[in-house]
Amino acid sequence: MADEVIDKAAAKDRVKRKKAVKDRWWAVAFIAPSFLLVAVFVYGFIGWTGYVSLSNWNSLTPDFSFAGLANYIYLFQDFRFQADLRNTLFFTLLFIGFVIVSGLGLAVLIDQKLKAETLFRNIFLFPMALSFVVTGVVWQWLLNPSTGYNTFLAFFGIQPLWYTDTTILGGFQWGSIEFGLPVAIIALVIAAVWQMTGFSLAMYLAGLRGIPEELREAARVDGASEWKVYMKVVIPLLLPITVSVVIIMAHISLKIFDLVYAMTGSGANFVTDVPGVYMFETTFRANYYANGAAIAMVMLILVAVFIVPYLLANRRREG
């Protein structure tokens, strides 16, 4: 009798364990295809691009003979690529700065218990739903020196040349380029900020809503002005969100291609060129595959510098 009970329990245990093993296999079967695809299409292909970037494949026919770092050395001495790095640096700084300021500003404004708050929020957010190509096509006209916003600015007697301006502000010779702020980049920044402000606005608004009203109330009771409440209480609490916004915007900015391609192209003296456009044109229009691969690897490294620490920090915070 007692033996039977034990047998039964043992049998039940076996069934249960068998089931658990089966469940494990199902779990593996669920994720294996995706992970295999990502292993090949992301990591395998990056490795392959790295290999191409070290080869002599600079014509239509593949040539995988080893070229060492020749393609990279060529790039860093190249006028166009130096201009690209300069443009990317200034575009990224201005773009991130303005996206944060405008997103935070609008979030605070909307958070003032405005009537029609949903309407305002939707207006600031809708450009996020558009393609960079549409944005580029439209802003190409809005910032055209002979029409667009210049029609209004004429009242104030200013007629910026926008993306056709070839001035480099504060320029000094550096390598083969003039280093400084390319004025034409500002036109691209304006279009990109118009499109992406909604992102930081949504992030900051969610963040503001997450700050308990009591915290602000307590500061007010202590006699802090509304300005101080924001500077000393609210904005510091929003720091993690600011970090996320900076990282996400930085990676968008470093790999930007479609907006520039649709709106301005490379520009005279490459004042609006970026690595994404250079990579596309040199690889797929001129068949310099190894050069294109080298540009892509530089872009990847720039993005990874931002993203990898961010992902690892996220991992630690969760784990």
């Binding site: 299409f41 990676h251 993203i307 992902l311």
Partner: peptide, 17 residues
């Protein structure tokens, strides 16, 4: 985390292969 990295890469870096 290894999977997530794929979300941020510039797609130029996998385009040729």
């Amino acid at each position: 985390t290894v999977l997530l990295f794929g979300m941020f890469i510039p797609y130029q870096s996998i385009l040729i292969p």
